[in-house]
Nucleic acid binder design. Structure first.
Length: 567
DNA sequence: GCCGTTTTCGGCCCGACTGTTTTCAGTCG
């Protein structure tokens, strides 16, 4: 049970209490406890009840609830509420624009209990006819249902990675185990977690898996060599394939690239697939490419249709890697909605080998996130000056940079005065509200922000949340062209929830000479590690070290920022 | 349910935006 698991349970309890007409103040207590616990930098499962009650918004009842969740993984009260609620009604919370009140109306007035019911009611116009609903809401529901259906059965790369790693460790007693498939290719969204086991005893592998709690086999899809099923509590499919030693390496290659990549032909007319099947066992993947007469492509880039074109122009070593990162520029602290102080975050950044840490807390429009007023910006910058003075006094070559994540308002302007904007080393400009826009409106809004001379970095360009929210449509070429013209860096938001901008646009951005910054958008120390996911996505798109903004060393970064401010 | 006292009750409560309205409820970050 992580803090966010516990917070999710408290939030869901609040929603279901609301759905079942609970006491409004009790509902608010659960919901605000969840909100404030989200900012607590300690592990909730490790706290005693007496310690928990000292936290803001936590009294005896919620402290006991947190303990119960920590100890049992469940909250009896939530289980009771869930038992009274059709699962399809709970699914409706995933539709953006539907909250408790509207879901309650749909359930009670139209008797809607499944997403299928909801679609039928929307298609037949019955939803628009309810008081408080209308044509636009009905269309929004249908659009959201279509998006959710298209994402069904997928999980984010971070969850897939955890599941795959866990299975690999558990299976390792049976022999050599390798993660293959989409996880090895670092797909941003995964529908099948696949692993290969090297063994001459497929029966032993199958019986091990069938004795595994948390996995359920789909017998119809399985064979003696291929166990297929799914992880309990998740829609994602799991495939565990057993191969003898003399087939293992070639299968690992074949199962780590999409078909379009495997049927690429070399100068002799032979495809990668043909070579892989003919090559003698235990040859490295590089040998398969070499014997086909094609340049080597790293697994994460194999789903990129431009991979071979990229590999003919660059070396694999040109690709950005974790070790090349020198700093980080988009992060939050306790000044806005982060869990840790600037000092804690900066020290952690040092610990993981970086030489600069940029703070970019929220601006006033993000009031829900405790965005900073002009006055609080002055105080924060004084604190940063002090931290930097302390590092310098200790002879530590590390710098905290003064940034902001300034909201892009509806008209494309930023929400600080020019005087405040000029006090930062750099400005990350991001859209956080009014996300529902046409492509024309969204593009015009971003273009105005890019043209602002104070904008240094364009934050999460489309506002998407993988598997949950599509993001507003933008004219990517126009946005990238404008960034090139105005020397604006584009963020690759490294949060596994976002990975925005999409890796498919990296090549175009590079061709225009645009810098790309791998930004963790960290709200806690460990959030800095999300840059790993950003690196995976960046490598998919072929991002090179020399175009990665935060691969710039500290000295170069300071010069670049200074020059950029002078225009 | 939590909090903070004018201390065991009485008051809690972000604000912009959207889609629905015709003055505002519901949603969201």
């Amino acid at each position: 049970m992580t803090n966010s698991d516990i917070i999710d349970i408290l939030e869901q309890t609040a929603k279901l209490l609301d759905l079942h007409d609970g006491d409004p103040f009790r509902i608010r207590a659960f919901s605000s406890a969840a909100f404030s616990l989200d900012k607590v930098p300690v592990s909730l499962t490790e706290q005693y009840v007496a310690e928990l009650t000292k936290l803001p918004g936590v009294g005896k009842t919620i402290a006991n609830a947190v303990r119960e969740i920590g100890d049992t993984g469940h909250l009896a009260e939530l289980d009771g509420l869930l038992a009274q609620t059709p699962p399809g009604v709970i699914d409706m919370f995933r539709i953006k624009g539907l909250g408790v009140k509207k879901i309650k109306t749909l359930w009670q007035e139209l008797g809607i209990e499944t997403l299928r019911d909801l679609r039928q009611a929307s298609e037949s116009g019955r939803v628009a006819a309810i008081k408080g609903f209308g044509e636009k809401m009905q269309k929004n529901i249908l659009d959201n249902l279509a998006f959710l259906e298209s994402q069904a059965g997928k999980i984010r790369m971070d969850k897939a990675d955890r599941l795959a790693t866990q299975l690999r460790d558990e299976l390792s007693s049976l022999g050599r185990v390798e993660i293959s498939g989409q996880v090895r290719q670092r797909a941003t969204e995964v529908d099948t977690v696949e692993l290969l086991v090297e063994s001459d005893e497929p029966v032993a592998v199958q019986s091990f898996l069938n004795g595994h709690t948390g996995l359920t086999q789909h017998r119809a899809d399985s064979s003696p060599f291929a166990w297929r099923g799914q992880a309990d509590g998740s829609d994602v499919r799991v495939a565990i394939l057993t191969y003898p030693a003399n087939q293992f390496d070639q299968q690992l290659f074949i199962r780590s690239a999409p078909e379009a990549h495997l049927i690429e032909k070399g100068p002799t007319g032979k495809t990668l697939l043909q070579t892989a099947l003919q090559i003698s066992p235990h040859n490295p993947e590089e040998a398969i490419y070499a014997q086909t007469g094609l340049p080597f492509v790293v697994p994460e880039m194999r789903e990129n249709p431009q991979a071979f074109a990229w590999a003919r122009q660059h070396q694999t070593d040109d690709l950005i890697s974790w070790d090349d990162l020198r700093g980080t520029v988009h992060n939050h602290s306790t000044w806005s909605d982060g869990q840790h102080t600037i000092q804690q975050m900066a020290d952690y950044a040092r610990e993981i080998g970086l030489s600069y840490f940029g703070i970019a807390d929220h601006s006033p429009t993000a009031s829900y996130a405790n965005g900073l007023s002009a006055e609080r910006i002055r105080q924060q910058q004084a604190e940063i000056d002090q931290i930097n003075a302390d590092y310098a006094a200790q002879g530590i070559a590390f710098r905290v940079l003064k940034g902001t994540e300034s909201d892009i308002l509806g008209d494309g302007s930023l929400d600080y005065s020019n005087e405040v904007l000029s006090s930062f080393d750099y400005v990350v400009a991001s859209v956080h509200q009014t996300l529902s826009m046409t492509e024309e409106k969204a593009t015009a809004r971003l273009l105005r922000a890019i043209e602002n001379p104070y904008t240094t970095i364009l934050g999460h360009a489309t506002g998407r949340l993988l598997l949950a929210r599509e993001g507003y449509p933008i004219d990517h070429r126009a946005i990238i062209d404008a960034c090139a013209a105005h020397n604006v860096v584009i963020e690759l938001n490294a949060s596994p929830y976002r990975l925005d901008m999409d890796w498919r646009w990296i090549e175009y951005a590079m061709s225009k000479g645009v810098w790309i910054s791998i930004n963790p958008d960290a709200h806690a120390m460990r959030g800095l590690l999300d840059m790993h996911y950003g690196v995976y996505a960046a490598r998919k798109g072929g991002l090179t070290k020399d175009r990665t903004f935060n691969a710039m060393p500290l000295a170069g970064m300071l010069v670049w920022l200074e020059k950029r401010k002078k225009g």
